[in-house]
């Protein structure tokens, strides 16, 4: 690899994608030849679970705001049609030190988008000497989703969820996206993926302004539990293998991913509470399998 030096007129600036294009390393996002014969599918299909695709796709991710930041959580299941492709898939990633990004949609392009996004944020920070604003980061991700639209029209949709801590406003902020790259700021919480609706309802019922960090984490965990209960594409806690949903917190101190043992303990207390609420339910089919 040569030393990438450019004349001032051709300099890509702090834009890593432009740099990739200049150095010939960019991945083309044009539609696949021949794929159009199947016709465009429901672009949200893989994200909402409407049309089971043969591509692997991720499922329920949630984000909610608490007093000092945001909590983001995602289940670990990846499905391929009606079978399970991965049990320990990661869908929640750090964007950089102060932000988190979660993905729903087709796994391959989604993970690649996150990787490019992470490099882009760090690249900007190093070249410019300062970090992008949270709004700037959200915009960057929107551009990536928009560039991905041709693929999304072929059924390979990627729908991220972005949240982070805004140092200027001293608060957590959440952004949602659609396949066209439209992005909208949420006031309190959001969930996407095939189980997003159930997760959102759970959070809606338990949410109030000024939740503490612990309360917010527990609410996110309950939302994932309920989503897994209702949606085939969403995995619940896997007690046998010890695989638990990923939970991340971003506050003024930065991005932290919760320890598995912590998440496991929270699930255990949630399950214990649910059992207590219906003591007679066990023998009559309410058993947790």
């Amino acid at each position: 690899m040569p030393l990438p030096l450019f004349s001032p007129a051709e300099d890509p600036g702090p834009d890593f994608k432009a740099l990739l294009r200049r150095t010939g390393l960019a991945v083309p996002t044009t539609p696949l030849p021949g794929a159009s014969t199947t016709g465009p599918r429901d672009p949200l299909g893989s994200a909402t679970g409407q049309s089971p695709s043969t591509f692997m796709h991720g499922t329920t991710v949630v984000a909610l705001r608490f007093a000092g930041g945001i909590v983001m959580a995602g289940d670990r299941r990846a499905t391929e049609g009606y079978s399970i492709a991965h049990r320990a898939m990661e869908k929640v990633f750090p964007g950089d030190r102060w932000s988190a990004v979660a993905i729903a949609g087709v796994a391959g392009p989604a993970v690649e988008m996150v990787r490019l996004f992470q490099v882009q944020l760090e690249h900007y920070e190093k070249v410019e000497g300062l970090s992008l604003s949270l709004e700037g980061k959200a915009n960057q991700l929107a551009q990536m989703v928009r560039e991905h639209l041709p693929m999304a029209m072929q059924g390979l949709a990627v729908v991220p969820l972005f949240a982070g801590y805004d140092h200027r406003r001293q608060t957590g902020r959440i952004f949602t996206y659609d396949v066209t790259g439209g992005h909208y700021e949420e006031t309190d919480f959001q969930a996407t993926g095939s189980g997003g609706r159930d997760a959102r309802t759970t959070i809606k019922l338990g949410y109030r302004e000024g939740l503490s960090r612990d309360e917010a984490i527990d609410l996110a965990i309950e939302a994932l539990f309920e989503a897994a209960d209702e949606d085939a594409g969403t995995g619940g806690p896997d007690l046998v293998r010890g695989i638990y949903p990923l939970v991340a917190v971003v506050d003024a101190d930065g991005y932290v991913q919760l320890e598995d043992s912590d998440v496991a303990a929270r699930f255990e207390s949630l399950i214990a509470r649910k059992r207590k609420e219906r003591p007679g339910g066990m023998s009559s089919g309410g058993e947790l399998r």
Binding site: M1, L19, V119, H123, K126, V127
Partner: peptide, 9 residues
């Protein structure tokens, strides 16, 4: 920075 980031990517 550009060399390192593209190489790492």
């Amino acid at each position: 920075v550009r060399h390192a980031d593209t190489k790492g990517y």
